[in-house]
Nucleic acid binder design. Structure first.
Length: 704
DNA sequence: GGCGTTTTCATTTGT
DNA sequence: TGAAAACGCC
């Protein structure tokens, strides 16, 4: 394999073999290139079989891309290699080994919402008030406990007050129910393999022997269980290679431990440390700005990025009266790049900021894709169908059962379900099992019949699992429950949309079957449970991309807009701790360094949170951390609102669906908009179904 | 008791 | 703005 397209540091990182290696890979320093070349080097030059390599990436997409690139570099079949996220690698390990600890290999993976409903049920079962014991809060507490590897026992005797005492009970019961449901939550995916390793040394030994070389990407964002996982596997042979950048550690709130990277040597012993400090991505201006920001942090390893790239353009700052005007201004600036939209990104701190920008882009006819927010697999209709599938695969999954036992409505309401649930609890059996014994239940004939039909529906589908393709079973199921008709008879735009999504889901199953050559629904479920929005993102689509800064990690764009730079929003408000502020600052650093050519920063002097109350905001302190000389138009640090700010409050007239008034034709509805701004061609339907095509700027329309 | 409708309430980030 | 709880009608 050729190494001549690597710089000397990169080459060192690739060819150094033996013992722990830590690579500090700054933003845009060719980290992915190093990782792929390293793996190719191990296979081609060292002769290590691919099945002896474990590489952990941050997203499934990154894993896929890495595989593709390695195939291009080596002349081997690498299908045996293990590349994936921590969660997907662990899920596969659990499929093989989870029976050792009393689960069965068809376990269901619960997402946060599922976990929350289990917690809620537990709280209710303890007869506690859900107002006082907020399920969401307790779900987060449990998650944090697992991320710091504390099992329920840890909390048994530390109960100071009533709420803490109950936390122990809730956590304990929660874990019991998960096991009874043959389900694991996201955190279990990371911790259960460790439990298996601990109780079954032969299993740990197997993986220690199998994975002779371990590589970890985005090492700065590993948390405690993830660290333990790779440590268990590699602490004997110590052939571990981790790549990370402490300046880009942005998942502290999820238990990521920045000390994993800062104290790498302490854990693994004598380690080789290599710093990649040449940046190939950004202009000097951008790097300079990013450096001035991040170097304010105290808790960081010493290093500084440099580049041979040009100075490039200065950074723009956009000031707006409110979030609506901000969106308009950002939209105006985006127009300049409308022929290279796939190179534009709009980044923000919170998903809720996307909507208003989306509105402007839609009105202006700019193609966009949004990452995050309501994920495809999080939509209600999709989750409903998935719940059917989960229940078919795993009858113990009571969360899924409760979701769909009365969907579409079949006359089984809250009271009936409560009855069956309490019997199931008493007999410590699953709800599904109890449905079989309905004869003994105190229920009406109608409900008994309904329950019986439901039972048979699931059971019959399950019986087909070994014979039929998953997609066939699901298609059949959808027909049996008459789902198309359920949505069709509602006859709303929304319902039609939902039905379309369900059709897309089935196509997704078929696509999975043909691409993975796997017809099991278990495999499909696992894939979608662990899929992120980034994984579905198509970077080649001719559209700009909007996403949170967290999602943008690892990506790059020519033109980057960072919006909502206000105190309280970015950095976001919480009970401020220096560590939190440093993490917010790293987040800003990540945002800046996504850009190759040009950065535009924007903030609004007032903002409506939800509903309507407008609150005055102050520009983010981060703006002042960038030296003036790098900024095109420094705006003074005041938060007063002048009357000028109201001048662009003209209502947007051209929008599909708006009712407008025309001097001659009277009132009409805009039914189509072709083009952007004043020159847009509008199709308007006036009284008596008269259709007119008008140019916006000549039409002189008034919005009603 | 079920089911559709209205009200309330909460909004960081994500596997 | 949406989802979940509360409400009120069949």
């Amino acid at each position: 394999m050729k190494l001549d397209n690597l710089n000397s540091k990169q080459k060192e990182a690739v060819t150094k073999i033996g013992g722990p290696i830590l690579v500090f890979a700054g933003a845009g320093s060719g980290k992915t290139r190093v990782l792929t070349h390293k793996i190719a080097y191990l296979i081609d030059n060292i002769g290590l079989p691919p099945e002896n390599i474990l590489a952990v990436t941050f997203t499934n997409k990154a894993a896929q891309e890495m595989k593709t690139r390695i195939v291009e570099l080596v002349n081997h079949d690498i299908s045996g290699i293990s590349i994936g996220t921590f969660h997907s690698i662990s899920a596969q390990l659990l499929r093989k080994n989870i029976s050792k600890i009393g689960y069965n290999s068809d376990f269901t993976i619960y997402d946060q919402q599922d976990s929350k409903s289990v917690v809620k049920q537990v709280i209710k079962d303890f007869n506690l008030d859900v107002k006082q014991f907020d399920p969401k809060t307790y779900q987060i507490k449990i998650s944090n406990a697992k991320n710091s590897m504390k099992n329920p026992d840890y909390f048994k005797d530390l109960s100071e007050n009533y709420s803490d005492k109950m936390f122990y009970q809730i956590y304990l019961k929660y874990q019991e129910i998960l096991k009874k449901n043959n389900s694991v939550d996201f955190d279990d995916l990371l911790t259960l393999p460790l439990t298996i390793f601990e109780n079954h040394p032969e299993c740990l030994k197997f993986y220690q022997d199998k994975y002779k070389y371990v590589l970890v990407d985005e090492y700065q964002d590993t948390n405690k269980p993830q660290f333990e996982f790779i440590y268990s596997i590699s602490s004997l042979h110590k052939d571990i290679f981790v790549v990370g950048d402490d300046d880009q550690s942005i998942y502290g709130w999820r238990g990521a431990d920045i000390s994993n990277i800062l104290n790498f040597k302490d854990a693994f012993g004598k380690a080789t440390i290599i710093k990649l400090e040449q940046n190939y991505r950004s202009t000097k201006t951008i790097l300079d700005a990013a450096w001035h920001v991040v170097s304010r942090n105290l808790n960081r390893a010493d290093k500084k990025l440099w580049t041979d790239n040009s100075e490039g353009e200065l950074i723009d700052i956009v000031e707006s009266f409110d979030e609506r005007f901000e969106s308009k201004q950002v939209f105006g600036k985006i127009l300049k790049y409308k022929n290279e939209l796939d190179n534009v990104a709009v980044l923000y701190r919170t998903n809720s900021q996307s909507r208003i920008i989306e509105d402007e882009l839609r009105k202006g006819g700019i193609a966009y894709q949004i990452i995050g927010g309501v994920k495809f697999y999080d939509r209600k209709e999709i989750k409903d169908v998935l719940a059917f599938i989960k229940l078919i695969v795993n009858h113990n999954d009571s969360v899924s059962l409760e979701r769909i036992i009365n969907f579409p409505p079949r006359g089984l309401g809250k009271t009936t379900i409560d009855k069956i649930r309490s019997i199931a609890n008493d007999n410590s059996s699953s709800i599904f099992e109890e449905i079989k014994n309905i004869e003994s239940l105190n229920l009406s004939i109608k409900q008994k019949k309904s329950l019986n039909d439901f039972y048979n529906l699931i059971k019959n589908s399950a019986n087909r699992l070994t014979r039929d393709k998953g997609s066939v079973i699901v298609r059949n199921l959808i027909k049996e429950i008459n789902l198309e008709n359920f949505y069709h008879k509602q006859d709303t735009v929304d319902a039609n949309e939902r039905w379309k999504n369900i059709e897309e889901l089935v196509l997704g199953i078929e696509e999975y079957e043909s691409s993975k050559d796997d017809f099991s629904l278990v495999g499909f479920l696992e894939e979608v449970s662990l899929l992120t929005d980034i994984d579905r993102w198509n970077k080649d689509e001719k559209a700009l991309t909007m996403m949170t800064i967290h999602s943008s990690k690892g990506l790059e764009f020519d033109y980057v807009f960072i919006v909502g730079l206000e105190e309280g929003l970015f950095p976001i408000i919480r009970d401020f701790d220096d560590n939190d502020l440093e993490e917010e600052r790293r987040l800003f650093y990540v945002a800046l360094t996504r850009s190759r050519k040009k950065v535009v920063l924007s903030y609004a002097k007032s903002r409506r949170s939800f509903g309507r109350n407008l609150t005055i905001s102050k520009q983010s302190r981060f703006l002042n951390e960038i030296p003036d000389r790098l900024i095109n138009n420094k705006i003074n640090n005041k938060s007063t609102i002048s009357s000028n700010d109201y001048k662009d409050k003209r209502v947007h007239v051209i929008d599909k669906g708006n009712v407008v008034e025309h001097k001659v034709f009277g009132r009409g509805v805009i039914i189509n908009v072709d083009g952007v701004g004043d020159s847009a061609k509008l199709t308007i339907r006036f009284a008596n179904n008269v259709l007119k095509k008008l140019i916006s700027k000549y039409a002189n329309l008034k919005k009603i």
